[in-house]
Every structure is written in C-alpha cells, then in structure tokens.
C-alpha cells in the first residue's frame, strides 16, 4: 500500500539529511548508515565498540561471531529498541536516534529471545501483528495465511502455542517478520532450534523477501551464512573484526581444504598453514590430495583426521580464534 509513499518520504528524509550536512548517503542505496556506535550496559565494559556500518538496500547481511561478541547488542540498537551509548545512526534516511518513531513502522524484528504468547495460535499471532503494522483486516488475513503456508505452519494454525514444539514456536515468530514485508527485517538467530526441513523453508522465505527487503541476520550456522549472505560481518569482543562478501572473507584464509587433526602430540605439518585450537590442529591445504596425505600421516602416529572444505568457520577461527602460523614456531617446533 504505502511503498510509494514510503519511498517518497525516504527520498525527502535523505535529501534533508544531505542538505543538513549529516552523514552523506546515496538516497537509493543505503538503508543503514551507522557511525561510531557503541554500547556499555554497566559503564565499565563495552558490549559494542565504535561500530561503523553501511548496508545497501535489498541485501542480506549476516552477523557472525562467538557468544557475547555483541551481535544482539548491535541488532537491538539498529532496530531502535536499545539506546546506544555513543554514535550516530541513520536508518531509511531518518535519524533513528532522534526520530525513532519515523523508522519503527518500516522495520520488523524478531529478537533472539522472543517467545510467543502461549494461549494463542500461530494464525492469531501473525494476524494481530500485521494489524498492528497497519495492514487492513483482509490483507492481514491473506498475508498471515501466506507466511504460515510458506513456513509449513498452516497445518497447525489452530493449535495454541503451548501445545507446539519449540521449533514450531520459533517458526511462528519468524513467520511474523516474514509476513510483514517490511523494508528492513532483523532476525536474531531465526533458525536456532529448527530442523533441517524448516530451516530450508526459512531460507526460501528469505530468498523471496530479498530484493524488496533488506535483511539483517545473525546465526551460528556457518553454511546458512554462506548460503544466504550478500555480506558477512564478523564480530568479536564488541568489535567489527572484518566484513565482506563470502568469497572475499574466504580468501583471507589460505588453501581450499581443511584437515582437522586431533590426538597427536606435536604438529607435523611443515610447509602448511595451520591453527591450533585447544587440542586440535586445523591445517589448510590447496588440494584434496594434500589433505589425504596429511590424514594418512597423522593416522600413522595415532591421530585422527577429518577432511572438509574450507568454510566461513575457518575465517572466524583465523580472525579471532587460536593462533595462526605459516611456519610452526616456538616450543611446538621442538622436534
């Protein structure tokens, strides 16, 4: 209904900002523009530090990083739900810190720890949410039905939440955001706890949403991040450590294949890049022949090896985990 109105408003908003000499932005392209965002909950530790961010329209951007990295903190600030301690934030051409009420109706978000009201059905949950978003009653009914069908929830539309399993509850929440057709959709770990089939139905729904909507995701499932993201932002310790397309990030790690080795007392991978992580070594090689060779060498000295393709997980490990060396050094090289 109001897409046109919204885009006109958006243009006006962006223009105002440009004229006011605010953060400069391309009115067509950039939906999120953040500068120096920071958050401390207790005044001592920074949960998010000095984050700069710009996100283009129609993209799927995934936040990746270990527990406590600051992903949820960043998402909550971007949805205008949490006030940052520092920084500037322009969303959809509006100053989201000064006028959050102008951007809020154009955003949909599913928080990480959201739970559905327990005495209602998935249909009632999605339908009412759409009415709150300004849909007419008939549009809300139609879109609720479409989203529930898309996520395989139509069959349980009349069951109350209390009688549904955890994965179904999570899907009902995801259906809310997907049905919204909002310009900007945030989902904090939407697929956590979902089975292999329903995860794929969420992926399909996200693919449909893409193009019209910009999606910000967080996930701990690496293959999901690789499969869905136009851009990945890797965070650690409240900092944005790195960002780029999946292939740009993958190129930060040498090799194509990875051999994960454990059960050996010292590394025997001279000439290869490797990382030590707790008691295991991750060795990066270029060919599958090399990985077979390493695996069999390790087997000879009683180790176990697992061969796999290089993934974003290795980028995360490379950037924020273990230590990394092209040549083994120090006491590890005592042979």
């Amino acid at each position: 209904m109001s897409n046109q109105v919204n885009s006109v408003k958006y243009l006006l908003g962006a223009k105002r900002l440009l004229m006011a000499g605010g953060v400069s932005l391309d009115p067509h392209g950039i939906v999120i523009n953040a500068e120096g965002l920071g958050k401390t909950y207790d005044g001592v530790k920074w949960a998010l530090r000095n984050a700069d961010l710009s996100v283009n329209r129609g993209k799927v951007v995934t936040l990746l990083g270990p527990n406590g990295a600051g992903k949820t903190t960043l998402v909550r600030i971007l949805t205008t739900e949490l006030e940052p301690s520092t920084g500037k934030l322009i969303i959809l051409g509006e100053d989201a810190l000064r006028n959050p009420e102008r951007v809020r109706p154009r955003i949909a978000s599913i928080p990480q720890e959201a739970k559905p009201i327990y005495f209602v059905t998935p249909y009632e949950l999605v339908f009412s949410y759409l009415v709150f978003r300004g849909f007419s009653i008939s549009d809300a009914k139609a879109e609720a039905r479409r989203a529930l069908e898309e996520l395989g929830l139509w069959g349980v539309r009349n069951k109350i939440m209390n009688n549904l399993s955890g994965g179904y509850k999570r899907r009902a929440l995801v259906a809310m955001a997907l049905a919204s057709n909002a310009e900007l959709v945030f989902m904090d770990e939407p697929t956590t706890g979902l089975d292999v089939f329903s995860r794929r139905s969420v992926w399909d729904a996200l693919a449909r949403l893409k193009g019209n909507s910009t999606v910000i995701l967080t996930t701990h499932y690496i293959e999901e991040a690789e499969f869905l993201s136009d851009e990945v932002i890797i965070m650690n310790n409240g900092l944005v450590v790195s960002r780029g397309t999946v292939s740009e990030l993958l190129s930060k790690v040498n090799g194509e294949y990875v051999v994960e080795v454990y059960g050996i007392s010292k590394p025997i991978f001279e000439g290869y890049s490797y990382v030590k992580l707790n008691n295991r070594y991750l060795v990066y090689v270029d060919t599958s022949e090399d990985s077979s060779l390493i695996a069999s060498e390790c087997a000879k000295i009683g180790g176990k090896a697992l061969m796999r393709r290089k993934t974003l997980e290795d980028v995360v490990i490379r950037l924020i985990g273990g230590w990394y060396s092209d040549e083994p050094t120090g006491d590890l090289d005592s042979s």
């Binding site: 909550r76 949805t79 205008t80 739900e81 009420e101 809020r104 109706p105 955003i107 949909a108 978000s109 599913i110 928080p111 720890e113 959201a114 739970k115 559905p116 009201i117 949410y129 709150f132 978003r133 300004g134 929440l173 809310m176 909002a182």
Partner: peptide
C-alpha cells in the same frame, strides 16, 4: 512479563503501535 519474558514489546516497537 510481555516485555522481559516474551520480548513482545521489543517486537511491537517496530509496528505502528505507540
């Protein structure tokens, strides 16, 4: 309860409700 336990208020912030 809706705000802290269910995070429902956080979801509804991003709607037309005030």
């Amino acid at each position: 309860y809706l705000r802290l336990e269910l995070k429902y208020q956080s979801m509804l912030i991003n709607t037309r409700l005030n």
